[in-house]
Amino acid sequence: MLRIPCPHCGERDETEFRYRGDAGKARPAGDADIAAFATYVYERDNPLGWHVEWWMHVAGCRKLLKLVRHTLSHEIHAVLAPDAEPPFPPREQGR
């Protein structure tokens, strides 16, 4: 189980949050073509390593957090505000 350090509430159990998917995808401009929206809605990487993702603290402050999480070790490298640019993912730890 993840323990997510919420910047507003402190460290909380994963069960208090709702996973809201890949935070690396930006919604295209409204007039973008169908292909651009299809990419936004359907195309997802499945990285082994660092992943930038949305978690909403639904049982707490209801704020949306941007997490940089390692998909194998589950290490959380950063918890950011939604508009923050994630720091360059840390180097892969030896595994």
Partner: peptide, 13 residues
């Protein structure tokens, strides 16, 4: 509710 809050914190920031 979650859908609205999500968009208010992302696309409609």
């Amino acid at each position: 509710l979650e859908h609205l809050e999500f968009h208010l914190q992302t696309v409609c920031r």
